[in-house]
Design a protein around this nucleic acid. Structure first.
Lengths: 221, 221
DNA sequence: AACTAAATGTTGCACTTGCAACATTTTACA
DNA sequence: TGTAAAATGTTGCAAGTGCAACATTTAGTT
């Protein structure tokens, strides 16, 4: 996974930070960083800690737009519409680098290699992110809970080339990610277990079928 | 909307095309370009015409992953997983420029301004695309047809700052985009009309309420 | 203009799923 | 270590929606 300052040494990184007039934020666990963010078209880089970009629905339920881990990058263009509906929460004490996107783009007189490298890194990161969004859209276009789960399993299984899936978060958050009711998901996972499609041990799910086909999965153990 | 060769003159554009060893494809209406595509991590640029990137479900229904219009850019990383599930169809006779992403990134000895400009353009395009994906995810996380429609209206209305929404495609494709059954959508649109929330004339939808709130929209004519 | 295909409108019905409410287990933290 | 909070498991029920089947309108093609 490409990181924002990959192939850029400390010296040049410092030069870039000066050039972009970056800001460094320190945020305590379970607090919002939204108030500390000075604008809308910003690039954020999590130096340490861990963030969640969420949307609060008017009926109280929250949706995870994105999880931003250590050394990961996010952008705040999502806030452009209704800033009050969204929130960015530090799930751990975090340190974040904030960069104004317009400053990145409109740097004058900088034909330096490390500047180009930075832009390339940002491009690569953004392309990967688009791909991740595509995956989630793949899942969310499935109409039944079962098919969303199977699509999710399929993607995760492909990604790691294994029948074992280690959930990156808990079942409550998984239900949010899949945009389904948690209890209904729990019910369907039980069905899948009973029908012999999967096995669940803690956060590890084992796929017991050969290849996923959304209409009619085959058991092939 | 940024285009791939914005702020790059014809002379430099030709230099870039040579440098990247681009390929030009001519495709007839309603044919797939998938067979003509030489790899997976490619950037495509539609010189003329209009494409649809779709996914064929095993049960026969198709989903529009993305629409790619004239002078628009797409990337093929979606094909990385299951190339046979996806397809890229020319909806009109089209001319497409194909660029290998690795060639773009690994150009040697090119400190030229226009190269940097190209990368910046590609970055900008990709960022916008990510934002569009976020919007669709916003919609797809809504659990009822009504709320998906209202969220879609809200986004479209905000985007153009108007109560009038001009659908960019027909109702069948809209149902695909929202990932709901077309007839069920038709039924819900009728309800919304009868309850005085909206008016529909052809592809123009007029919002008759002041502000969208997913739990309980207010009529405010 | 005639014909075919596609898009749209409509409705009954079965079934999935969201919701609420609760019990139980696990985790977090003072 | 004890206690509160969060996560998980379970179930009944009502409601929303997918599906199928069909009629009707509109668009596209020769």
């Amino acid at each position: 996974m490409t990181k924002l300052f990959d192939s850029i040494n400390t010296r040049n990184r410092e030069k870039l930070e000066k050039l972009f007039e970056t800001q460094t934020l320190h945020v305590k666990k379970n607090t919002s960083i939204l108030a500390s963010i000075p604008g809308e078209h910003l690039i954020g880089y999590v130096i340490s800690g861990y963030l969640e970009i969420i949307k609060n629905d008017s009926n109280g339920s929250k949706f995870i737009i994105e999880e931003v881990l250590d050394e990961d990058t996010f952008n705040t263009s999502i806030l452009a519409f209704n800033k009050n509906e969204y929130d960015i929460i530090a799930k751990e004490d975090s340190t974040i680098l904030i960069i104004d996107y317009q400053r990145i783009i409109h740097v004058e007189d900088c034909n330096k290699d490390y500047y180009l490298q930075f832009i390339k890194n940002l491009l690569e990161i953004t392309l990967v992110k688009t791909q991740e969004k595509n995956e989630r859209i793949e899942i969310l276009t499935k109409k039944t809970i079962r098919n969303r789960l199977l699509e999710y399993f399929s993607i995760m299984s492909n990604k790691h080339g294994s029948k074992f899936i280690y959930l990156p978060y808990n079942f409550t958050d998984l239900a949010d990610y899949l945009a389904i009711d948690r209890s209904a998901m729990s019910r369907e996972l039980k069905n899948l277990k009973e029908e012999g499609f999967i096995e669940i041990k803690g956060k590890r799910i084992t796929l017991l079928y050969e290849k996923y086909s959304s209409s009619d999965p085959l058991i092939n153990i």
